[in-house]
Design a protein around this nucleic acid. Sequence first.
DNA 1: ATGAAAGCGCTAACAC
DNA 2: GTGTTAGCGCTTTCAT
Lengths: 342, 342
Amino acid sequence: VTTTIHDVARRAGVSVTTVSRALTQPELLRPATRERVLNAARKLAYHPNRAARSLITGKTGNLGIVVPDLSNPFYPAIVRGVQLRANQAGYAVFLADSSEDAAAEENLVHAMAKQVDGVIVCAPFASDAALRRLLDTTSIVLVNRRCGDIPAVLMDIARWMREAVAHLWRLGHRSVAYLGGPRSAWSNRERLRGLHAAAKAHFVRLIEIGPFEPKFEAGIEGANLALDAGVTAIIAYNDLMALGVLSRCAARGVGVPGDVSVVGFDDLLFASMSAPPLTTVSMPMETAGSAAVEVLLALDGNNAATADHSLPTRLIVRGTTAPPRRPRLRTKQPSAPRRAPR
Amino acid sequence: VTTTIHDVARRAGVSVTTVSRALTQPELLRPATRERVLNAARKLAYHPNRAARSLITGKTGNLGIVVPDLSNPFYPAIVRGVQLRANQAGYAVFLADSSEDAAAEENLVHAMAKQVDGVIVCAPFASDAALRRLLDTTSIVLVNRRCGDIPAVLMDIARWMREAVAHLWRLGHRSVAYLGGPRSAWSNRERLRGLHAAAKAHFVRLIEIGPFEPKFEAGIEGANLALDAGVTAIIAYNDLMALGVLSRCAARGVGVPGDVSVVGFDDLLFASMSAPPLTTVSMPMETAGSAAVEVLLALDGNNAATADHSLPTRLIVRGTTAPPRRPRLRTKQPSAPRRAPR
DNA sequence: ATGAAAGCGCTAACAC
DNA sequence: GTGTTAGCGCTTTCAT
């Protein structure tokens, strides 16, 4: 039932070697022969068996990606970027969902290691040690996480957290709540880093609430806490939570951005669909996915050879931020922050 | 660098055959031997090379899934269901995004066919002929699409479209617009089938608008058209479009559900987060993914042996449906439809 | 209960 | 340029 290289060879009246070459190094063949072989292959609908090929070449033509939770819209976007770019480069991709389990993050990579040429790892929970262990198995590139000199695709979260605070400050806010994500998540720590730097620079009273699961419901809970604390602005760990905040504010009759301003992170599809549309720090997720593939492909076996890849990020000012009702300080109208350089 | 079966054999002082058996048919070995081999394998961190194994057994231990668009939240949910169930059964999964291209839907399956034991196909655009062609390549199970007797996991869309219309009718609506999805999509045709049946049964004036790309923006455009046509209720092809309708209504100062009722399809995560929360027909996407895996695994090579798998669906009445402002007919208060039997 | 040997489908030296 | 040959790592008859 399977057509093999031998079938093609017989039909084209050549040896299997010639068939193999026609497919992998066509320039070595006389055009006439090449055509004859390619024709036969087409006629027989022949496709090389990748398992057999990989057995000898050591390359699989596959890539892998591990994400913590496919039901968080952040990750499908990354997966999509990976998928599209990989396919374009002739690679197929393995996908695994770790269900936000630190152990699974490591195991899933190990499990696919044998069948891939490299894997893109979104593992906010795995320990640094676990990550380093993976290096013995296959090439990896981290997304949104730094771990020693393991190649990584990053977004400058801390910087844009500072910009977000600055934006709020310029509007006149002096009392801001941050609704935190998972304590151990790398990107949460980065947000905090930016937050503290910003608070120092701008003399903003900062209230940290959390940690929360990065979900809609957490935004509802966080909004209650933040509102009761009397802040004039809320920065959420991500858009999902920010949307929860919006929902809760509406339910409590708190006007946004009239009574309280809200800033999210990610710029999910739905961030622009809310009412009012959400001011948020955009994360180029699909781009990150593609970039991770490029890094992986460029790596070509030798790990730790590449510098981190940092992606441009920016603050998207939409409808959920405005001057507080009773600004303690009069400032000029908000000016949209410039786009990230480079 | 790679440890092979020979390394284990040498270390355990047995032949490679014995090592192979220790891993695949342990009962054939004397316990003592078996232990010795297993120990050696563990010490060497030996994992069989799946490519080599698959070369001879013909089985790969992999499954595939093809979806039209990962950025439509409908599909990540299916993928997640597939992933989780497959992993649990010891399978790894290949993922491919066809970018809503009919040709790609077919090609991607062909491309992964050699590396998988079966693939789950979400292909709304591929022709029936194309789908049938896939059968020569590998086992497949369709999701949300029927094509001859190819195994499929379905949701009873037409029936619940009828229920949706009935719900609207009971509320007093007599003039309803349907914002259609892609003309050729199977699930759009199913919706239309249910719609026509319902309209016949309930004497509702029906206005079909579209086709549209199943996205938020289309909902905005569709809302304008529907509103101008003077209907009192709008049924959208999916939640994404329904959310667009909501957004446009808000912008035009049209009250929902006061001035117009809105019904979506899918019950995305965000359907319950809108203001007001969306009345919608829920589609058990993650379940569909798991179910598809079960069907595939049960198939075990022999296609066309399984009856269609139909998943329970239901209408979730939330905040976007209510009696029209000037009902032409007074009816009792809306009663939530019963849950789907079975 | 265990081992020797023959491939699975393919590529890569190495001849010609 | 093209063919011959020797495996890649593994499972599986067929012996013993």
